[in-house]
């Protein structure tokens, strides 16, 4: 799996980090994690899950039949957990670096245009 991960992929892995989830649960959890910004549709979700299964980042945990409908629960594998941790660390370092720069900028004040405004 190529890194950096795309946002939906990252959010799917993050959603599965807490507990195994089925398709509908994953979609609602990704929406919640992203404050409603990322809204996966089933076609996109299962396409992403296929890639993650192929890459060994998630695995099928168990299957249930609820109201005569199949529910398949997915879990994060150890490999998936390691990748998620690496990505989170990379993003955390980026956030820290950007925060430090922004803080320094705020302390300096907004830079004036060269030569001022005539």
């Amino acid at each position: 799996m190529e890194t950096p991960l795309r946002e939906p992929t990252f959010l799917i892995l993050a959603a599965l980090a807490a507990e195994p989830l089925h398709g509908y649960g994953l979609i609602t959890e990704v929406t919640r994690l992203s404050d409603g910004r990322v809204s996966l549709r089933p076609g996109t979700l299962y396409g992403a899950l296929d890639r993650l299964l192929d890459a060994g980042l998630v695995a099928v945990e168990r299957e249930e039949v609820v109201d005569s409908r199949l529910r398949r629960y997915y879990r994060l594998t150890n490999h998936g957990g390691d990748l998620l941790a690496d990505e989170t660390e990379r993003m955390r370092r980026n956030v820290e670096a950007a925060t430090a720069r922004l803080t320094a900028r705020t302390r300096r004040g907004t830079p004036r245009l060269s030569g001022g405004i005539a």
Binding site: H22, G23, Y24, I27, P42, G43, L45, Y46, R69, L70, R71, R72
Partner: peptide
């Protein structure tokens, strides 16, 4: 059936 169930 899993995909259809998620749409439902």
């Amino acid at each position: 059936t899993e995909i259809a169930g998620t749409y439902l």
